[in-house]
C-alpha cells in the first residue's frame, strides 16, 4: 500500500508498504530517517519515540497505515538546521550520551516534557522518562541534562 505522511514538515510518500509494517520501519527503511531506534519493537524501551500529531508515541506500535495523512516529527526534525535544540545541547554538555542508542527517544521525551512542564521536579522528570530505557548511563546524567535544559530555558 501507499502511505502519505508529513515528516518533519515535509510531505512524504512511501510505496509498496506491507500492511503489517510499523511507522518505525517506514521511517527507518523507506524514508531514510533512522533516528528513531529499533531496540525492542514492543513499546518497552522508548528508543523509537516520535511525535505523532504532537504527541510522543512509540513508532514501533503505530501501524504504518495509521500514520496516513498525519504529522510525524522525529528526532531529526528537532534541530533548526545547524542549531541544535536546547535539549540536544544539554544532552551533549551533561554527558548524557554514551552509546547513544536511547538518546533519540530520550531527547524527544525530554523535549515533550519541557514543553509541557518548564520547571519539572526530579520525580516529574523520572516519571516522564520512565518509558525510555538507557543501559549505559544509569540515568544520572540524563537527569542532569533535563535540569540543565530547563534551567537554561528559564534564564
Amino acid at each position: 500500500m501507499r502511505v502519505n505522511v508529513t515528516v518533519n514538515g515535509v510531505p512524504r510518500r512511501a510505496d509498496d508498504v506491507w500492511e503489517g509494517e510499523s511507522l518505525l520501519f517506514v521511517l527507518r527503511e523507506r524514508l531514510g530517517l533512522p533516528g528513531a531506534k529499533n531496540a525492542c519493537e514492543q513499546g518497552e524501551c522508548g528508543s523509537c519515540t516520535v511525535y505523532l500529531d504532537g504527541v510522543p508515541v512509540c513508532a514501533c506500535l503505530v501501524a504504518a497505515g495509521q500514520a496516513e495523512g498525519r504529522e510525524v516529527r522525529t528526532v531529526e526534525g528537532l534541530a533548526d538546521g545547524g542549531a541544535l535544540d536546547p535539549v540536544q545541547e544539554a544532552f551533549i554538555e551533561a554527558g548524557a550520551v554514551q552509546c547513544g542508542f536511547c538518546t533519540p527517544g530520550l531527547v524527544v521525551a525530554a523535549h515533550d516534557l519541557l514543553a509541557r512542564v518548564p520547571d519539572p521536579s526530579d520525580p516529574e522528570i523520572r516519571e516522564a522518562l520512565a518509558g525510555n530505557l538507557c543501559r549505559c548511563t544509569g540515568y544520572e546524567k540524563i537527569l542532569d541534562a533535563v535540569r540543565l535544559a530547563a534551567r537554561r530555558a528559564r534564564s
Partner: peptide, 8 residues
C-alpha cells in the same frame, strides 16, 4: 560523536 547522536 555526540552531535550526530543527539540529532539521530
Amino acid at each position: 560523536d555526540a552531535i550526530l547522536k543527539v540529532r539521530g
